[in-house]
């Protein structure tokens, strides 16, 4: 099968990869690019473990075709920290113990990041709706909700230096 050459920005780096046309964007990120943060929990859009931001929109990478990324911009969990400095959401997840096995965590972090970019001061209900597309079988969600609200408060006080708009 002919492979397609895709050029895109991933976490601010210009990236090129070859993929099959029927390959999911999730498989391409994991297997062709080597970014294994996004996870496959279901492959059908139900669990959100594969959540990434494509062209500014939170999506399930398992439901997008890899060639769709050509010319686009992708953000994954690997791009959240600034070198050794964790993103406030990551710090907050650690402080609130919002993960056990951690398989769901990259997806929750991306969903939470997408939420806070549009709504820096969400209510608890708004947080719960924003993560409704992400499943966690370990934590029972409360700690995740607390971490997102905590990070939001932190970020309102202390906007991340040099944060991307």
């Amino acid at each position: 099968m002919n492979r397609t050459h895709v050029t895109c920005m991933i976490n601010d780096d210009e990236t090129e990869f070859l993929c099959d046309n029927d390959e999911s964007l999730l498989d391409a990120l994991r297997d062709e690019v080597g970014l294994t943060g996004a996870k496959e929990g279901c492959g059908t859009g139900d669990c959100g473990a594969c959540s990434i931001i494509l062209n500014g929109q939170l999506i399930c990478a398992c439901l997008a075709f890899a060639p769709e990324a050509n010319g686009g911009t992708i953000e994954t969990v690997e791009g959240m920290a600034d070198g050794d400095r964790l993103h406030p959401l990551q710090t907050s997840f650690l402080e609130e113990a919002s993960l056990q096995c951690g398989v769901c965590t990259p997806g929750f972090l991306m969903a939470a990041k997408a939420l806070l970019e549009n709504n820096p001061d969400p209510t608890e209900t708004e947080v719960r709706y924003a993560i409704a597309g992400n499943l966690c079988r370990c934590t029972g969600y409360d700690k995740i909700v607390r971490a997102v609200l905590g990070a939001a408060a932190q970020m309102r006080k202390n906007p991340i230096e040099g944060a991307r708009p």
């Binding site: 939170l58 399930c60 969903a111 939420l115 924003a130 597309g133």
Partner: peptide, 9 residues
């Protein structure tokens, strides 16, 4: 329809 992830597509 679905979640935010689904609605964005």
């Amino acid at each position: 329809i679905g979640s935010d992830q689904i609605q964005n597509r």
